[in-house]
Amino acid sequence: MFVEQLINGLAIGTIYALVAVGYSLVFGILRLVNFTHSSVYTLGAFMVYVGVEYLHLNIFLAILFSLVTTGFAGVMIDKMGLEPLRKKGASKISAMITTIGLSYIIINCLNIAFGSQIIRFPDLFNYGTFKLLGATIAWQQVIIGAVALILLVALSIFINRTRIGLAMRAVQQEPSAAAINGINVNMIISLTFFLGAASAAIAGTLIASYNQYLRSSMGDIVGLKAFAAAVLGGIGSLPGSVLGGLIIGVSESMAVYKLGGSYIDMVAFSLLFLVLLIRPYGILGRKGSTKV
C-alpha cells in the first residue's frame, strides 16, 4: 500500500516538476512569474489532440506538432505581450498582470473552439499493471515518470553543459554583461520561453494521456501546484523545481492514503506555507540566488 501510494505520488510529482521547471526558467531570466504557463500546458495537450483528431497525424508526429506550435506560442507570448512592455520599461507587476490576462485569453479561445467538456484523449502507454513488493503498479505511471525524468535530465544537461545553456545562465546572472559580451539577450529570452512552453506541452500531453481525457480547465489546479512546487524548491533553481514537484506529488498521495481525498488540494499549499516559514527562499533557493 505504501509502495503503491509512493509510486502514485512520484508519477504525478514528476509532472509537477516538469511544469515547475517552466516557471523557474522564465522567472530565472526575467524575474517574472509567468502565469500563462498553466494555459500553455493545456494548449500543449490540445495541440496533440488537434494533431491526432483533425490533422490525422500519428501520435508521435502529433506530439512533435504540439511541441513546435506550443513552443512557438510561448515565444509569441513574450514577443507580443512582454517584450513591448520591457522595451517601454513597464513595471514587473504590469508584465505579471499581462500574463494573467493572456492566460485567460488562451483558455477562452480553447473554450470557444472545443467547449469546456471532457474530451477523450488517446492512452499512449497503457501496458497494464505489474506487481512490485505486493503493490499493483500501472506501467503508464512508470513510463510517465521515466519520460518526465529523462526530459528533466536532458534539460539540465542542456543548461549546464552547452554553451547555449551557458548563455542562458549568463543572461540570468548579469543581463547587461551578457549583452556586452555578444549574447543576443532577446534570442535567449525567446529560447527560454520556447523551452518552458515545450516542456509544459509535454507535461500536458503526459497528463492527458495518463487521465485519458483533456478539458480546458485541466491546467488550473496543476498550474497552481506546479507553481507551489517551484517556490517550494526555490524558484529559479532547476533542481529545486524537481525536488518541489516530487515532494508535493508524494505528499498528496500520502495525504489521500492517511487523511482522505479531500485533503489533496490543501497539502501542497500547507507544505509551501510551512517550508517558507523556515526557508523563505525555498528548499534549494538562496537569497538573491540567480542560479538555474
Binding site: M1, E4, Q5, N8, G9, A11, I12, A135, T136, A138, Q141, Y210, N211, R215, S217, M218, D220, I221, V222, E252, S253, V256, Y257, G260, G261, S262, I264, D265
Partner: peptide, 20 residues
C-alpha cells in the same frame, strides 16, 4: 470510504485505497 475533491484530480491514490 473515500472523500474526494472531484474534477481533475489524480484518482490513482483513491483507487489504491479501494483496492487495498
Amino acid at each position: 470510504a473515500e472523500e474526494i475533491a472531484g474534477g481533475d484530480m489524480d484518482y490513482n491514490a483513491v483507487i489504491s485505497n479501494l483496492n487495498a
